[in-house]
Design a protein around this nucleic acid. Structure first.
Lengths: 190, 190
DNA sequence: GATCAAATTTGACAAATGTCAAATAATTAA
DNA sequence: TTAATTATTTGACATTTGTCAAATTTGATC
């Protein structure tokens, strides 16, 4: 149950088994089905999730019902409606399990406590924030410098598994394009 | 010289004057002119900057010479070519002072040392990372959900001072649109 | 203040992408 | 397996945005 979370920690943190266990025990397990909603717009996101298996999708919906995917979180990664969870304010995004998914979750108060109580965890968390922030900078760059074709091509190179795994519709609104445009890009490929 | 940096620290950190002084003394002062280049593509970014006055611009340039602005950093904020500085790898972006600018700067090694040596600093830095990351998430959202008109309107609401202060060209490539399109949006406004 | 350079605006047109509708294909659930 | 749902593709067209060129305005420098 905690195997992957421990691996995640051990990668960046020199901690003994007791510390790792104490850390992990703050998390609880949840299993969800396909297309299950974990958070709705307007709610304050209470949890941050660690994905053991499956895939979480954080997405927005506009007035016409058009969806846009902010993030996709697969095995071995933390994910949440980050602004809502961090600032404890109402979310503008939904969280959904696209596939049957197994997650570990912890509430905001306990998560903050971990930062105070577990030596080394604040550093590990900070380094992960840096990594996530860098990933978001690269995504911003691709959105302001590349057209749809280039963005799709880049995603194929960096995350081919995602493209195989997820429906077209979700890949499209992750890239910020319509599914029809994506469909045409895929066929027009040389 | 260190007034603003101390204020920045004091906002989130309970530290005595001696600690603040020790912290600040790791930074050196630099004054730049208009449109001066602080970092070029391909270089490993050695410094993170704290802007006392003026404005830094982190931007990219494509093969045709078209520029895109990744970030704008004004008074009282830290800024750098973040992926390059953090990972100490070659930068894909330039750093430029758009206006005559006064910055404090510190190299990567010393900056990392601060995280170990100054109690409370890692927390302050982590909280700022969270804030910057949240800002970048909101920017991604605006890029995948809004058209040019909406993005400009949003920028007018959140940062009217930036629009007044900076040339059209830079606002445009920060929004990911051409300057001609921006010019038309401004006149067509109802 | 005059001159030069840079920034902005405007027009005409081209290219990219979105929208809507329908047809087809694939997947899920009974 | 079949029926029902969901996903994907395709066509026709509308809309948005980009590109290039030129005119105009603004601002910097001597």
């Amino acid at each position: 149950m905690y195997t992957q979370l421990k691996q995640f920690l051990a990668r960046n943190m020199a901690a003994d088994e007791a510390t790792l266990d104490a850390f992990c025990q703050k998390f609880r397990l949840k299993k969800t089905g396909r297309n299950e909603l974990l958070l709705s717009v307007g709610e304050v996101c209470p949890y941050i999730y660690f994905v053991n298996s499956g895939c979480l999708r954080i997405y927005m919906m506009d007035l016409n019902g058009k969806e846009s995917t902010r993030f996709l979180v697969t095995e071995g990664r933390f994910g949440t409606a980050f602004p809502s969870f961090t600032l404890q304010e109402p979310s503008v995004a939904y969280i959904q399990s696209i596939e049957p998914t197994e997650v570990l979750y912890i509430n905001h108060k306990d998560f903050k406590a971990l930062l105070d109580e577990v030596p080394g965890w604040e550093r590990v968390y900070r380094i992960n924030l840096e990594r996530d922030y860098i990933a978001s900078i690269k995504r911003i760059e691709s959105l302001i410098t590349m057209d749809a074709t280039q963005r799709y091509k880049q995603l194929m190179e960096t995350s081919p598994a995602l493209i195989q795994r997820l429906p077209n519709r979700i890949i499209a609104d992750y890239l910020g394009i319509s599914q029809e445009t994506l469909s045409r890009l895929k066929s027009k490929k040389s």
